[in-house]
Design a protein around this nucleic acid. Sequence first.
DNA 1: TTGTATGCGTTATCAA
DNA 2: TTGATAACGCATACAA
Lengths: 340, 340
Amino acid sequence: MSVTIKQISELCGVSRGTVDRVLNNRGKVKPQTEQKVREVAQKLGYKPNMAGKALAARKRDLVIGVVLAARGNAFFDDVLEGIRGAGRELSDYGVSVNVHTMKGYDVNQQCKLIREIGRNVNALIVNPINDPKVASEINRLTECGVCVITLNTDIEGTQRLCYVGSDYILGGETAGGMLGLLTQGQAQVGIVTGSIKILGHNQRITGFRNIIRKKYPNIKVADIQQTNDDDDQAFIKTEEMLRIHPEIDTIFIVAAGVMGVCRAAQKFHPNNDMTIVCFDKTPSSEQMLKAGIVKAIVCQQPFTQGNKAVHLAYDYLVSGKKPGQDSFFMKSEIKIEENL
Amino acid sequence: MSVTIKQISELCGVSRGTVDRVLNNRGKVKPQTEQKVREVAQKLGYKPNMAGKALAARKRDLVIGVVLAARGNAFFDDVLEGIRGAGRELSDYGVSVNVHTMKGYDVNQQCKLIREIGRNVNALIVNPINDPKVASEINRLTECGVCVITLNTDIEGTQRLCYVGSDYILGGETAGGMLGLLTQGQAQVGIVTGSIKILGHNQRITGFRNIIRKKYPNIKVADIQQTNDDDDQAFIKTEEMLRIHPEIDTIFIVAAGVMGVCRAAQKFHPNNDMTIVCFDKTPSSEQMLKAGIVKAIVCQQPFTQGNKAVHLAYDYLVSGKKPGQDSFFMKSEIKIEENL
DNA sequence: TTGTATGCGTTATCAA
DNA sequence: TTGATAACGCATACAA
């Protein structure tokens, strides 16, 4: 049976209230008393009981806010599922989760949303645009005692509690390893990325290049194009790329625009004899995989990352203790048609 | 804010005790009262609060027992991690988890262990040997009110609460799909299985055959051998197989014995030009993957299956409600060197 | 058949 | 600076 505050209070000859004040650093305790309580708690190996904490937390009506640039981006559907699922699980434990989505990546809009939501919230989960304005908005919140967790993308220069999301380098390495296996190490690759301004996209390419340099010397990168995550641009850019580089037999799709790339690829190689690997399960990438056009999808546990972010926020709010790590990286999952 | 028993009792003009009796079917309530309470609870959408339940459950000192044929089988290390992890998480919520492992698959020993452990336990988690004796031992337990969950392998003819574990057919399909991609659909396959008496092994082969029949007509199965999950036998059988069938360029390892198979493969193909796929991450399969001898490992979320089984047992013991499904199948995960 | 009292571990509020 | 008490939601023993 584990140790309780009551037991400690009896052993110390003080009241439960006092022990609570010591253990939760609420001050207003005589140093000697504090000393004694800490000693006893330490010696007995006191670990706060989560069920008790949770029940008491109900009275505080804690709120976790979520600001996600997710609208119109199918990838985030599963992330939102994970967030909402955690919200349901935790509704019994005294917290509610408020989700706000926005469309696109407008810095000012995100700042405004963070400021508004942040006002009525004990913790905030956000996929920040990597911009100083957003960073200072986040820092303002943390100074007001609101804990901020970054989700899916991280941001520099902030006091965020932690990051939860993809390991983009690892994702790129996994895609590289998979392409190496699928092509038996012989390939002319066209890389189609979203934007060279986006850190995550670049990190995926870095990981990819690491692996082919190390393990697959006969895989060459013939060209690299940007799509701005848009299917129409993806089609145009890929078409042009394949026209100029007819030797390309393999495409590494770094970000969105999968459908556009595949349409162009089909135009030049109507019988699926290209090796295409992309990221993230969405209705369109799934469709391309089932059609045999995309050979493998590298995923990043979207449900788990949403779910985990909420649970970390909850733990911090209720137990007051910080997560054990600065960053929680998701696994890189390989999906083919059979295990989709 | 969600509805509580207290609120219902006030609205109905009865005591909390009565509402509790109705909602938990303890009887001893006048039909009219019961009717009324049910109506109100229904209308308000009453959902029991888990934190409260958990706190009250502490007084009952619930015990979850685990009997696992795991000793000497590295696959189960992660399963045990998941079980122990869940035990730690739930220790705050009024349950303790007692783990007992056994070595090998002796029916009588397992029966004995189930009987002994079952005596002092509210729920039992077991990876049963598929044998009538074990089945009747399990049924005896359920009749005594002990809930039984099967883990990793299922058993027929029992009243077990549910099954948690691998989807062996899916695993075989995934391995088949992966082999198809890696060989570009051209392969002479040698299958090395554990035993044709073991259902899971056969299901993996079934899944494998399904996929190559459907998608890869040019993949042929040249031979199939049994190893009894023993590395020495695996070496001997594989060596013989490769001698008799020099055309074999691809090996599908269904069960244990990975090291033995790989040693034999290396003997005939010293430069890693074979395509080998196997199951389950263990120190030896991991080593073979890193050496480039095994090209991919299909995994079955060992940690998650252990963790989930314990949580399901907990939910049943504390909330009294049965899991939503008869079987909880794990995902099929593809591991290559990069995302190991 | 029903109600009341008590306890699970923690936290908040008052009063001292 | 401390202690006593009530409350969170649920379960149970006991009294009526």
